[in-house]
């Protein structure tokens, strides 16, 4: 049985429309127009125990709504959801004692307390047995390299240090399911890597199921075997990262740097399976379809025209893939 089972989940919010300007604000004082917003429009998915799933989509697509429902802090308008046999929002307190949640933009630690005291307090809140707590705490401290931070008040931590502490805090009670909402937002490169390594190990060694929302596609590529794309409250795609790319458009971008703009200007980049994306001073970007034109062939052709200073292949940013997915989806709607 899947660990998470979601069927026909829908959530509709009623929001008051705000009229612009001072006059509008006055009118709003007495009369308010309400509008329904369909944050989730009937979504279905299963997540098996031990999966590491990326959940992406633009702001307002329904990501947070989904996470909040799965975490038990928001009731859906309709649909069902079972997590480890429980309906999260009906059995909230039992459910939340088995899951861990990290919101990248908010900390669950106590601002004025040293990290270790926040941990101790969470032990009491979650009623973690002392031996289990010691084990979990020591393992997490070692894994996340938290030893030097333990006596520092949370308000003095850097964002990266805080995120590491927050992740550890979410795992002290040994949850088998972890929701990560934008865990790498605003972090420096080193911290991002540390977080990714940690999440990967956690998933691999402890079989913790992870649902990760992020805007950073590097997170997705580095961690997730499976990715779900949500847009306008519906799941638009669900599968492997590569599969998603192929499904939309199998296109890579070759970036070619020359020493001078004049050399760049001379490069002719037209032909079968090739498309010029942009020409910017000494840099040229060419899109190509590797199934129709292998990268080696394309590079060979370019080298015949001149000697670039550097060249490398970019995946199209997933953002673009996703954007195209939406466009495609809108097309089908019509």
């Amino acid at each position: 049985m899947p660990q998470i089972e979601v069927r026909g989940l829908a959530k509709t919010f009623r929001v008051a429309e705000r009229l612009p300007g001072l006059a509008g604000a006055f009118r709003g004082l007495f009369h308010r127009r309400m509008r329904d917003v369909h944050a989730l429009d009937g979504i279905d998915f299963d997540i098996e125990r031990g999966e590491l799933v990326g959940y992406i989509g633009p702001n307002g697509a329904g990501k947070s709504t989904t996470i909040k429902i799965l975490a038990g802090i928001l009731n859906p308008t309709s649909g069902t959801c079972r997590v480890d046999g429980l309906t999260p929002w009906r059995d909230r307190r039992r459910h939340v004692s088995r899951i861990g949640v990290v919101f990248g933009q908010r900390t669950q630690l106590w601002w004025d307390l040293p990290v270790i005291e926040s941990f101790d307090l969470l032990r009491d809140i979650y009623r973690v047995p002392p031996a289990t707590y010691r084990d979990n705490r020591d393992r997490l401290i070692a894994l996340m390299d938290l030893e030097p931070l333990l006596d520092v008040p949370v308000r003095q931590l850097s964002l990266g240090q805080r995120m590491r502490s927050d992740l550890a805090a979410a795992l002290l009670h040994g949850p088998s399911l972890l929701f990560l909402d934008e865990p790498t937002i605003g972090l420096d490169a080193v911290s991002k890597l540390a977080i990714r390594d940690f999440v990967r190990e956690l998933n691999r060694d402890r079989q913790v199921t992870v649902l990760l929302t992020t805007h950073d596609m590097d997170d997705i590529e580095a961690l997730c075997d499976r990715v779900m794309v949500i847009g306008n409250g519906r799941i638009l795609a669900d599968g492997s990262v590569d599969g998603l790319r192929r499904r939309v458009r199998n296109e890579r971008v070759l970036v070619v740097d020359y020493d001078s703009a004049s050399e760049a200007a001379m490069l002719a980049a037209e032909g079968e399976g090739v498309r010029l994306v942009e020409r910017d001073a000494s840099r040229v970007r060419i899109a190509f379809d590797p199934e129709r034109l292998p990268a080696a062939t394309l590079i060979g052709k370019l080298l015949a025209q001149g000697t670039p200073h550097d060249l490398f292949i970019e995946h199209p940013p997933i953002e673009q893939t996703v954007a195209e997915l939406y466009a495609e989806h809108d097309m089908r709607e019509r």
């Binding site: 006055f26 004082l29 308010r32």
Partner: peptide, 15 residues
């Protein structure tokens, strides 16, 4: 000042 009024007017219950 105008922004202040607009903010206040949004909160009719409070008014």
């Amino acid at each position: 000042v105008s922004a202040r009024y607009r903010t206040l007017l949004q909160y009719r219950a409070a008014a």
